[in-house]
């Protein structure tokens, strides 16, 4: 599988690009009573990757995150973080992983500095190193000026940054961020995105779930789309786009529309469906058989006088809508 990145660790044996797997999930099932929240998800996330986890509410994203964060006691299947078994070696997993849950509270009785000292002690960062580590993460997250502020008084964006600072204290290899941009204003979201980019540059493996798909598009190297507890698509953005573009929708307006012309357009190779709408025709095209340019030529050849030729843009939202059917739980 190509990721277009340098390996996080030296390549071995072959001349091919190689990287270690940071997260590996095999046939994961999470059930709450009789309800299956996750149904057999399997995926591998290489080290250094930013993996976007997308899915409607209740799709099973948070349950998967909880398994990886060692917070789910009972599940079936296997889950490994940096080669460590989540079920058998939870304590070691916690040492290499940082988790920011989707809903998180902060201790209102602490200042930012005390909050970070608290978690540094909880992560068992040696006392002698704590001050410098905390200074570093405060600088990285641009929170130095808020060090003495009570946590309770911070804005939501600041609290998110503080949460991110918290999980960086023990220098984890993997970061699990469940909806980190949820509820943030545009400025805070942009700042968060820049921060995540910086972490990506540092070589951290980041698994991130979000509903703000455009952001994931700018940040993620690979995405996985989950619905009803199942992974319905997984791969690089290009791979997913390519897969979905098999049936590209093209809107056209024709000046000389007639039933006969409609028949001729339907006969163009690659046209799967033609739907007549009020002011336009919507053509579903097998793009792997016929390219957009070939369709355009075919339409002209069929005698259409085109006033509009508009292929539908493929973006994350489209992919999401195409792959999921909105069957939220």
């Amino acid at each position: 599988m190509s990721t277009g990145r340098e390996p996080a660790e030296p390549a071995q044996e072959t001349g091919q690009r190689t990287r270690r797997i940071a997260i590996s999930i095999r046939n994961l099932w999470v059930s709450y009573g009789k309800f299956d929240a996750v149904k057999g998800i399997s995926l591998d996330i290489p080290q250094g990757e930013v993996f976007g986890f997308i899915g409607p509410n209740g799709a099973g994203k948070s349950s998967t995150f909880r398994v990886l964060a060692t917070l789910q006691r009972k599940f079936r299947g296997q889950a490994y973080v940096c080669g460590l078994d989540v079920l058998r070696q939870p304590q070691q997993v916690r040492d290499v992983m940082g988790f920011v849950p989707d809903f998180f509270g902060v201790y209102e009785d602490l200042t930012s500095l005390e909050y970070l000292h608290f978690f540094a002690a909880a992560y068992k960062v040696p006392t002698a190193k704590r001050k410098s580590v905390i200074d570093d993460v405060l600088t990285l997250t641009d929170m130095s000026h808020k060090a003495e502020s009570p946590v309770d008084g911070l804005s939501r964006g600041m609290k998110q940054r503080l949460a991110l600072a918290r999980v960086l204290l023990h220098d984890p290899q993997v970061l699990l961020l469940d909806e980190p941009s949820s509820g943030l204003d545009p400025r805070a979201r942009i700042e968060m995105r820049e921060l995540l980019k910086a972490l990506k540059e540092m070589g951290k493996t980041i698994v991130i779930s979000s509903h703000i798909l455009s952001e994931l598009g700018q940040l993620c190297t690979r995405i996985g789309i989950v619905e009803l507890g199942q992974l319905v698509a997984e791969g690089s953005l290009q791979e997913i786009y390519r897969r979905l573009q098999v049936m590209r929708l093209i809107h056209i307006r024709v000046e000389n529309a007639s039933a006969e012309l409609e028949q001729r357009v339907r006969a163009i190779p690659g046209v799967a469906k033609l739907e007549t709408q009020v002011d336009r025709w919507a053509i579903s095209l097998h793009e792997d058989q016929t390219s957009l340019a070939e369709l355009h030529a075919g339409l002209v050849e069929a005698g259409t006088r085109l006033t509009m030729f508009q292929p539908e843009a493929m973006d994350m939202e489209t992919a999401f809508m195409k792959l999921t059917e909105g069957r939220t739980i």
Partner: peptide, 17 residues
């Protein structure tokens, strides 16, 4: 809870193609 051993099977190098 478990054996405490590193799961070597899942640290296999991933081949770039």
């Amino acid at each position: 809870v478990g054996t405490g051993e590193l799961q070597r099977d899942h640290t296999v190098l991933m081949e770039g193609t």
